[in-house]
Design a binder for these strands. Sequence first.
DNA 1: TCTGATGCGTC
DNA 2: GTCGGAC
DNA 3: GTCCGACGACGCATCAGA
Length: 674
Amino acid sequence: MSVDMDVLEFDPSKINWDGLKTPYRFLIDTFVAIEKTTSRLKIIDCLTNMLRTITYHDPESVLPAVWLSSNAIAPSYEGIELGIGSQILTKAITSVSGASSKTLKQYYIKYGDWGDVAYAAKVSVRTLMEPKPLTVGKVYDTFISISKLRGLGVVDQKTNLVKKLLISCKGEEIRYLTRTLVQNLRIGAVKTTCLIALAHAFCLTRPTNMVIGEPLDDKNRLFVEDVSKESKDSLNTKLKAAEKLLKECYAQFPNYNGIVKCLLEHPIEKLLDFCHLTVGVPLRPMLGEITRDLGQVFKNFEGILFNCEYKYDGQRAQIHMDTNEKVTIFSRNLENMTDKFPDVVKLIPQICLNNVNSFILDCEIVAINPEGIIQNFQTLTNRSRKNVELSSITIPIHIFAFDLMYLNGESLLKKSLRERRELLRARFAEIPNRFTYVNHIETLDPEEIHLFFKESIEFGCEGIMIKILDDPPNNLENKIRMNLLTSYEPDKRIKSWLKVKKDYVDGIGDSLDVVPIAAWYGNGRKAGWWSPILLAIYNPDAETFEGVCKCMSGFSDEFYKELKSRYSQENDNISKQKKWYFDVDDSLRPDAWFEPIEVWEIKGSDITISPVYKAAIGKVDPNKGLSLRAPRFIRVREDKNIVDATTSKQLAELFYKQIKERKVEEFIEESENV
DNA sequence: TCTGATGCGTC
DNA sequence: GTCGGAC
DNA sequence: GTCCGACGACGCATCAGA
């Protein structure tokens, strides 16, 4: 019986652990089976069979197994972090393997994966007694213990716990254990895949009358659904329904602790009765789809009314208030950010009009100056994050609300955007410079939308969001209608919310011509290729190339292969030694330096003031250079020579142009002197 | 008490 | 955050 | 269309070590 079998043939009862707890080995065997394939269906089947087996023999270990498979150990909003990286791993591995840290470094260059490094280093420490085989529960518990360590000497304490685990590993276990420690399991199964497997598992192997913590005797026994009696079609329908249910549940209650508990104690059909939208538990935010061609949108959705909103350059936030006026703030990735925004916590009760006693709203938090003028994203990131005192806040913020998901005990997810928007505007009070509804227009005229987009950029926004307000008329093709949901669809990126940013559109946005001057060895899928690649602009006065950013996005596999042959030892285009005319901070240590021989066009969403890069240093800030936010490769400029690359002066001008476009006064005067 | 390295969060 | 690859 | 994992710049929090 092996987990990579067809789910219909797999029989969890045939696996035997002699009544012991789930061996870690069993989980790892599953991961090994998963890594052999790239087929998602196959991956799901392996995980499904693994979870069924644990449910059958050792239900208490289902939850730890789910966490360990999903590359996490707790919901993000609980703030439980391992805090382990290369430093602690190197310490732990060197002390149990005898390999020097230099050797480990070489291994890391070779493999690009800490799990592979640990595996290659081989544990050589002998213990008096053979360590007991690891169990799933033991590994998970140790991870939780590690996450709780804090204060003086944590590095040593964590290192010791990691050492103990490493010593107890057998065979492949060390590879995946290490990967879990650095939160990079890399088995192609993160969120959705795990969720689907969980759904399938509890369809096929259903526990009943089970009480966690009590022995599985006759009174407290497992009932295993007899799948063989079902026709394949009807079973498939059931599995699909369960998938949908789990996804819907997770989107509004993203917490495996609650979900798995419920699945073990109740029939899967009851899941939403227990795990549903709840004040104090973040839902996964709805996302917008990247839109490059507005013309096509208007063609497809002709005659549909849009709500167009400014897309402010700040931080997405989900604000919850319960019936005791307790406010909680969650980030886009469901981290609890309440501590960072005591000013928001204080403000929130003031925005509630009569009869608002609990709610969840979606908004963008943006830095402003004392006059109420919007500041850029970098300003917002300068705020402290922990133990923030109200009196110590120096960077005020403005909340731009755009959606309402819950009000006074009722979920609004299924309501149309128009209804949700009306409630948001009717039941909450705007406070100038503090809390307002996003700037918006309601139109079906493409011209108006274009104009609105232009204004948004001038105002200092990233662009606009275009959202469907009402259910579209019936005469549209079904295919399009399907995607035009006006409900709030948590965790989905669908066509009813379109994201339009200036850098998506050809001809606008910051495009630079740069010279590749160095690179690192790629990891994982990109092992064997150069990735990322260090890029530079040209300073004609000093005749130097100034590092501006690294880039790893926008290259095709084919391009990587060509690049590897273009920059190799054979053709002498790489060297260990940095050239004297490369102006790059010593903190950047690429694996190879390139001959400067070609020019690439790259694009980014913003030019930033950089503490690391030297590009245009002294021209904007005496000690800091400039860099690029979200850089990506566009094409090779075969028509350009390396000295035709963007110059430091041009980059500084671009920076000032960006500032000017956004009407930020303090920089405009300086820009006259560039 | 300060500095630099590391981790982890935002985009 | 962007992007390309695999399904 | 969906999912995943290659990695980007940047800044605060934390801790080791001088």
